[in-house]
Design a protein around this nucleic acid. Sequence first.
DNA 1: AGTTAACCTGACCAAATGGTCAAGATGTAT
DNA 2: ATACATCTTGACCATTTGGTCAGGTTAACT
Lengths: 215, 215
Amino acid sequence: MTILISPEATQTRQRNEQKIFDAAEFIFASHGYRGASVQAIAEAAELPKSNVLYYVGSKRKLYVALLERMMVSWNAMLDDISVEDDPAEVLEAFIRSKMELTRTHPQGSRLFAAEILQGAPFLQDYLRGELREWVQSRAAVFKQWADQGLMDPVDPVWLIFLIWSSTQHYADFEAQILGITDKESLSEGDYQRITDFLCRVILQGCGVVRRPEAF
Amino acid sequence: MTILISPEATQTRQRNEQKIFDAAEFIFASHGYRGASVQAIAEAAELPKSNVLYYVGSKRKLYVALLERMMVSWNAMLDDISVEDDPAEVLEAFIRSKMELTRTHPQGSRLFAAEILQGAPFLQDYLRGELREWVQSRAAVFKQWADQGLMDPVDPVWLIFLIWSSTQHYADFEAQILGITDKESLSEGDYQRITDFLCRVILQGCGVVRRPEAF
DNA sequence: AGTTAACCTGACCAAATGGTCAAGATGTAT
DNA sequence: ATACATCTTGACCATTTGGTCAGGTTAACT
């Protein structure tokens, strides 16, 4: 199943798979699995369709490989958030990591969104397994903090969803955001300001106790 | 262009268009414009493909009609939020209206999301026109409140996006939410609790001055 | 009851779909 | 230079695509 680019692959293979993966991520993200055509991916990758299929085997395998690639980044982000002492620190790291994933992997984020919109046919198991575990464990920590009076007694799961949604939005709804703000793209500065805004509102909104530092 | 169900339509037409619209909304929402096939829509509507095309003319017209139908609801929601006196009241009404739209029109919300994911090919004009105007006008009001010290000086546009994203999420990522929370569906009670949570966090997060009432 | 407009649908079409394959071109290690 | 694996690609295939149409059935109004 795994056809991620392996180190022992030829240079030619690495180069072409890279082109195919990048092209496919864009096409799959904007049109979903069914709506993406191998022909369209091939054109975006500037390769003949037969060549694309030579490398990836089939449309389905390509899609799965892309999802797997994205889940690696996603899991790396989840691993980022492991400090357990200070609520403010952890929550802020959480928001910043998630936003960084959105900023650096907008295509992948959109691919993920398209997959979920379809009803998550390929990611069901991951959601109901690994990810659920992760959410439960984090939620337990948040709960403790609330019990200790370090933050308001908000439902931790809704809080996690709030962080996911408010950051994810800047990938998935980019077209809307650019249309409304009349921009060509969001700069790194924009992302920084948005992230600061979200950290501020969410931490303050949850009544997270914060040592008086500069904001 | 407009082929929305008109009052002078036959009973047969009304009934069948209803079936087609409902089916199409689901198919378009989960597979995007390209990924949706007329055949699939016809099957979901339990009608022969030819019959579907007899009523709607073409796949494209059907898609546009659905978007228009959704934009009517969307605009109704925007109109809901017109009181301009009290920040807390207005912001809370904003959040509740948007969440109500998500709850009562999950398919339409997902359809909207799919359209934006594609790069908003059909809604470009709306986003850059009407909707931008609306956002600007609301932002101006929020700005005033901030200047008057009724809330923290947060960027009003990011605030609007925060409200949109955190509510929209419960339609678009339903599959993820149900998978993680191990539920079959979200009850009205769930929605109420989530809405309360969002109102609480966002209002408090923006430092909105609130007359001391029960929370 | 008769007429007419609305409705229904199987047969059909050209184009696009995912995928195969065979035959040749290119790279690479000796 | 030779040999072998990797790469390349146009031709091809069955299936599905959005859409048309002719000829029929049904409903609605007088």
